[in-house]
């Protein structure tokens, strides 16, 4: 479940940062970026991004191994015939 939710969380927090960057350019004095809440969000974004990246790398490796195994199995099957 977590694996399914984290990509959405990354999209939502990143979209929030787009908004923060925009309104910070309009009114920097309101400290939309430089405040404890957005710093916490940035930390969460980093953690989620790393989690997603690690999960993606693991999945890619798993898939590569699976494809390799399947290829090998087909090869062996052909050789047996």
């Amino acid at each position: 479940m977590l694996r399914k939710l984290t990509p959405h969380a990354v999209i939502i927090i990143s979209a929030m940062y787009f908004v923060f960057f925009f309104i910070d350019r309009v009114n920097a004095s309101m400290a939309f970026i430089n405040n404890p809440i957005t710093k916490g969000l940035l930390f969460a974004l980093c953690v989620l991004a790393i989690y997603n990246a690690v999960a993606l790398i693991r999945d890619n490796r798993k898939r590569a191994r699976y494809l390799e195994r399947r290829k090998l199995a087909r090869h062996e099957k052909k050789a047996g015939e």
Binding site: H8, A15, M16, V19, F32, I37
Partner: peptide, 15 residues
């Protein structure tokens, strides 16, 4: 929808 809700919660706490 979640984005809109979270942004409003942020505004609530920030402002």
């Amino acid at each position: 929808l979640v984005f809109a809700v979270v942004l409003n919660v942020f505004a609530l706490f920030h402002h």
